[in-house]
């Protein structure tokens, strides 16, 4: 029996891979990225259908929104590069402007390609068959339900994330910190991110939206204790506000001192880590919150993490460490418009 919801499920399940295929097959990268964002939104819809509202929120904000923004800004940077190159009249030399020369695409031999494709297909079919064969095991749902009362929060997902498997989340916050560190180690940011001045409409809109988004982020963190929401969702909204401010090239953003930014990145990981250690010092195990106060501790960790997640994601969007203070920038060869990454060197 196939009711309306069943048909909806089927259409959704078919639409996802179809969109994925179109996305990768599209010759135009910009189009591919737009399709990627719509795929992310469709995924969020799927999570709602699968009764995973927390994941849906995170997917819409981080998976579709922020990742999409990252892709688009990378594409713009690459396009700007290839434009500069075209201007240098190097045209006849390179056929495909999109391609990075050292990694020239080798045409696979049709036989090997066919064989690999066959292998892939066989494995996927095997996987599908075994998924269909195997009855689902127990899962930890009942165990979580039993212990939920002692976790200090009412939302099951938050209880797993911040309490039962809080150690995972501690390390995950570190991954995010590490990503920011990695990006900062690679290059310096070029502000403003946009070449053209933002219009007055955008500037006004951003001034209005940013405080609102910060409030929404706070609400999401607060509500995470009992319903869908939490540090990651709140942090993502905060990051979106940061991205808007960066795009609008608001003066305040450019004047944030680098030290403050560093503290912003480090606050969440540091506080989380200190909480874990305090638990040990108080005689418990690592990350074993005192049972009556667990809710408050979790809220504290979540708030600090949300701030850091927001700053980190926005920093990832900016795509580099903050520019050095102008005092050190003597020697006029590094003007603001010039390539600020001269230190990375093309020395072989």
């Amino acid at each position: 029996m196939m009711d309306a919801m069943g048909i909806f499920d089927m259409v959704l399940a078919l639409a996802l891979p179809w969109l994925g295929w179109r996305l990768l097959a599209s010759p135009d990268l910009f189009r591919a990225m737009v399709l990627f964002i719509s795929l992310g939104l469709l995924m969020a819809l799927t999570w709602v259908r699968l009764q995973a509202p927390d994941v849906a929120l995170a997917e819409a904000a981080i998976g579709a929104g922020l990742t999409g923004a990252l892709f688009l800004s990378a594409l713009r940077r690459l396009e700007r590069l290839s434009e500069a190159e075209r201007r240098l009249a190097f045209a006849g030399k390179r056929e495909e402007e999109d391609e990075i020369p050292p990694e020239r695409h080798r045409r696979a031999k049709p036989v090997a390609y066919g064989l690999a494709l066959l292998l892939l297909a066989v494995f996927v079919l095997l996987l599908a068959w075994s998924l269909a064969q195997t009855p689902a095991g127990g899962g930890l749902g009942p165990a979580v339900g039993e212990q939920l009362g002692q976790s200090g929060v009412r939302s099951e997902v938050t209880a797993v994330l911040l309490n039962f498997r809080g150690y995972d989340t501690l390390l995950e916050v570190m991954v995010l910190f590490l990503a920011a560190l990695g990006v900062w180690s690679l290059t310096r940011v070029r502000l403003p991110l946009q070449d053209e001045e933002p219009g007055p409409v955008l500037a006004t809109l951003v001034r209005l939206l940013a405080p609102l988004m910060i409030m929404v982020a706070g609400y999401l963190v607060w509500i995470g204790g009992s319903r869908a929401g939490g540090a990651f969702q709140g942090g993502a909204v905060l990051a979106a506000a940061g991205v808007l401010l960066l795009l609008a090239n608001v003066t305040v953003v450019r004047q944030i001192p680098a030290a403050l930014l560093r503290w912003g990145l480090a606050l969440g990981p540091l506080l989380f880590l200190l909480t874990a250690v305090v638990c040990v010092a108080a005689g418990g195990n690592l990350l074993e919150y005192p049972p009556q106060r667990a809710g408050a501790w979790i809220l504290l960790i979540e708030s600090a993490s949300a701030v850091s997640i927001g700053v980190t994601l926005a920093a990832l969007y900016a795509g580099g460490r903050p520019p050095e203070p102008p005092a050190q920038d003597r020697g006029g060869e590094q003007g603001p418009g010039r390539d600020a990454d001269a230190d990375a060197g093309g020395r072989q």
Partner: peptide, 21 residues
């Protein structure tokens, strides 16, 4: 998660030298 930390840190360290290669 620890594998991801290790991998991401290793990649960043590899790129640290700044040489195109």
């Amino acid at each position: 998660v620890t594998l991801e930390i290790t991998g991401l840190a290793a990649v960043s360290l590899t790129a640290l030298s700044g040489k195109p290669a």
